[in-house]
Design a protein around this nucleic acid. Structure first.
Length: 761
DNA sequence: GAGTTTGAAACT
DNA sequence: CAGTTTCAAACTC
């Protein structure tokens, strides 16, 4: 059973990830670390500050890292060590788990590679077949930050105990018997921290062991520590340590109980019909065992804005299937808004429209507004397999998720998941989406989460305006006769509009700015149903317009202020748009899903779902979708001459330059800001002194502070020129130009001072 | 800003 | 599945 104790999650982070005291001094060698036994530690490469946190995760005061073919040790000046040790060398007790030092490091399994790719993952791949002398053990890792010891022991082929020795405050024995044969499946140990809040996520993607129901170390398939640098100069990148080794994940059978921990609390959701599912959320997400079959996680890119909506969709699940868990990306602790769409197993399409399904639709909705935190999560069971689309409404601070369901207005539809290769002819398949019902699920602040489910309206347009804080609705995709909405509580600008072609079953929730896009007739009746079968010239145009892959359309957005010609990707042509969506989904069911999703188990977290096909760019330009998404090319890619892999020196150089450039830009911006600030401050202080005669001359503004700020700008320019290997002449010119700009700025402020003070000047 | 390069998607 | 076409983004000058 995949159980992870909350205690483990509450203990490990603080014990291990004392990032406050971490001194990042050198980066880990990024080349292969399966060096010969006498190999010296590789000299640090060009410092890439974004790679430093890997050291942080393992060796808070790391100054060197040594690895041989038989051991791997991360030594620190303070004695902190990272040891990769075979579990067989460690007896099955907690006490012995604390054993560290050279004795443990002997006869360690060979580490095949240790790499630090650009996505800040330190991956230590161990050779699956350990030497016989090692007793076929699969390895263990001892993390001993600041005197504490953490042993993450692998699964022994010979049944030897695999342990997780926790810091001294961890009292539970972490030893169990191994009953499975551990061979092939990789195990990841990932270090995860968030800014200021170290966490550890332990998850098991499979039922590794027998019937144990307690937290046992060998079941820990994944330890994930993701660190966001406290001071990030390269965006919200996530740094991870992944120690990969071979494990067996076969034998998945019984559903595992789930004990996700949310900031020390256990939140478990279960229904009478389905095995318990659990969602963890909160700032310190810690433990989520996973049975990933059928699950799909769409984790937000760590490089995106933390405010970006993340959609975690869970695929359809049979009532008998094992539980599913969703681990929220840790960026939730950074203000990222997470929406999880989880399909209820009790609301199959065959039951859609029944009172039971209706109740199921509403009840499981779970919102958690963090007290004292702005993070929350919403779980929305659907009645039909959803096609989740992220919607970014231009100009709106709300994030939407569009759920396009394949259903008709009939509540007694019996089939689902059918496909129709001909979008225009669907007479025999009433379930097909000749009308798409939209669910716009906005994300609002945690403290103001409110869900309003309106009943089908029989009157004309409903434009509800209240004085409340802007909120949006979560609309059901099915008939909800029992739910009586409180329309008077709707936020200002909220508009209930009928989804074209959906009869009286679907409603579109529109932010106020889009009211202007809705033609008045669209409000007249909510029971009007526009059929796609009646092709019109406009629809023909729409097909032409939307069949192309407009980015807005592909992202589930409406075009707004685009340069597109004859655009039909707007509410004026909603029916045509929905038809185009349907056509696209018919051709490609995942057309609106992000290409960059979670990789397979054991692989890096993010990967291109399809793979790139680059030929000339070497996958090191933004032409490459993988490179653009800042992920490595994978085996799915069909690229030629790919250089977008972990050890690629070209890629490392590019990443380094990009990081350096970003730092330069920030420094330059800071210097200019400082200059402006100094000048403004000077003006504030000197304005009263300006005489009523001709005022002060510009040079009088060149005080010591201004001069220093100017020098900062000039130095930045010089460094910039040096960084780009500019000739001296060019460098001088750039510096002089910068100086000129500084002077102009000073003069400008001086002139402004005169202008702003006509009375005194 | 114009022209070129590139690769994804559509099309055949 | 492979080759071709289209087209918008990325890139260069």
């Amino acid at each position: 059973m995949d159980v992870v104790s909350p205690e483990l999650n509450s203990l490990l982070p603080d014990e291990i990830m004392d990032t406050e005291a971490i001194a990042m001094e050198e980066e880990l060698p990024t080349e292969h670390l399966a060096a010969p036994p006498q190999s010296e530690p590789e000299p640090p490469q060009v410092p890439m500050e974004t790679e430093l946190p890997e050291i942080v995760s393992l060796c808070p005061t790391t100054t060197s890292m040594q690895m041989t073919s038989t051991d791997a040790q991360c030594s620190t000046s303070s004695g902190t060590q990272l040891l990769l040790a075979p579990s067989g060398l460690i007896s099955g007790t907690t006490t012995s788990a604390k054993t560290t030092g050279p004795a443990v490091t002997q006869n360690l399994p060979k580490i095949s590679s240790v790499t630090v790719p650009a996505n800040h993952q330190l991956i230590i791949n161990k050779v699956s077949g350990a030497p016989a002398a090692v007793g076929k053990s699969l390895g263990a890792a001892v993390l001993k930050p600041e005197g504490q010891k953490l042993l993450v022991a692998g699964l022994s082929k010979t049944g030897q105990p695999i342990m997780l020795a926790l810091p001294h405050t961890w009292n539970k024995p972490a030893t169990t018997q191994s009953t499975g044969d551990a061979k092939a499946q990789p195990t990841q140990i990932k270090m995860v921290t968030t800014v200021g809040k170290p966490v550890i996520a332990v998850s098991s993607a499979s039922q590794l062991m027998g019937s144990s129901t307690t937290l046992q170390a060998q079941q820990l398939k994944t330890l994930q520590f993701t660190k966001k640098p406290a001071v990030s100069t390269a965006g919200p990148m996530i740094t991870k340590l992944i120690i990969t080794k071979a494990l067996n994940n076969k034998g998945l059978s019984s559903p595992a109980s789930v004990a996700p921990v949310v900031t020390g609390r256990v939140v478990t959701q279960s229904t009478p019909v389905t095995p318990p599912r659990s969602i963890t959320f909160g700032e310190t997400i810690s433990t989520v065992p996973q049975n990933t079959s059928g699950n799909s996680k769409v984790a937000i890119s760590p490089l995106k804005s933390p405010s970006k909506l993340t959609v975690v969709s869970v695929a359809s699940q049979s009532p008998n299937s094992p539980q599913k868990s969703v681990t929220l990306p840790l960026s939730v602790a950074l203000g990222q808004q997470i929406l999880t769409v989880q399909q209820s197993a009790t609301t199959s399409p065959a039951k859609a429209g029944t009172s039971q399904s209706t109740a199921q639709t509403v009840k499981p909705v779970q919102t958690v507004g963090g007290v004292g935190t702005s993070q929350f999560k919403t779980i929305i069971p659907l009645t039909t397999p959803p096609n989740v689309q992220q919607i970014q409404v231009p100009g709106s601070r709300f994030h939407y998720v569009r759920l396009v369901t394949a259903t008709t207005g009939s509540s007694t539809a019996q089939s689902s998941g059918s496909t129709n290769t001909n979008p225009s002819i669907q007479p025999a398949k009433p379930v097909m989406m000749n009308a798409a019902v939209r669910m716009s699920v906005p994300i609002v602040s945690a403290q103001t989460i409110k869900q309003v489910v309106p009943k089908p309206l029989t009157s004309a347009a409903q434009v509800v305006t209240t004085s409340q804080t802007p909120q949006r609705l979560i609309m059901p995709a099915t008939h909800l006769p029992q739910i009586q909405p409180n329309l008077t509580s709707l936020p200002p600008g909220t508009v209930l509009a009928p989804a074209h072609g959906s009869g009286n079953m679907g409603y579109a929730v529109l932010p106020a700015p889009y009211v202007t896009q809705i033609p008045q007739p669209a409000f007249v009746t909510l029971t009007s149903s526009s059929s796609f079968s009646t092709a019109t010239p406009i629809q023909t145009q729409a097909r032409l317009s939307l069949n192309g892959y407009c980015d807005c359309f592909a992202n589930g957005e409406f075009c707004n202020n685009c340069n597109c010609v004859n655009c039909f990707n707007n509410l004026d042509h909603e029916s045509e748009r929905l038809k185009a969506i349907k056509a696209c989904l018919d051709r490609n069911p995942v057309a609106f899903k992000p290409k960059i999703g979670k990789g397979k188990e054991g692989e890096s977290d993010r990967r291109h779902s399809k793979g790139c096909n680059c030929k000339k760019s070497g996958c090191l330009k933004n032409y490459c979708e993988c490179y653009e998404a800042k992920i490595m090319c994978s085996s799915m890619c069909k690229c030629m001459g790919c250089k977008n892999f972990e050890e690629s020196p070209e890629r490392k150089t590019l990443m380094h330059l990009a990081d350096a450039a970003e730092v330069r830009v920030q420094q330059q911006t800071a210097a200019k800001t400082k200059l402006s600030s100094q000048i403004s401050d000077l003006l504030t202080r000197t304005t009263p002194a300006i005489t009523s005669g001709g005022g002060k001359l510009p040079y009088t503004f060149v005080t010591k502070e201004v001069a220093e700020a100017t020098c900062d700008c000039l130095l930045e320019q010089a460094e910039q020129a040096e960084l780009t290997n500019q000739p001296q002449a060019v460098a001088e010119r750039l510096i002089l130009e910068e100086f000129g700009r500084c002077l102009r700025r000073i003069i400008s402020f001086a002139g402004k001072a005169k202008t702003d003070c006509p009375i005194n000047c």
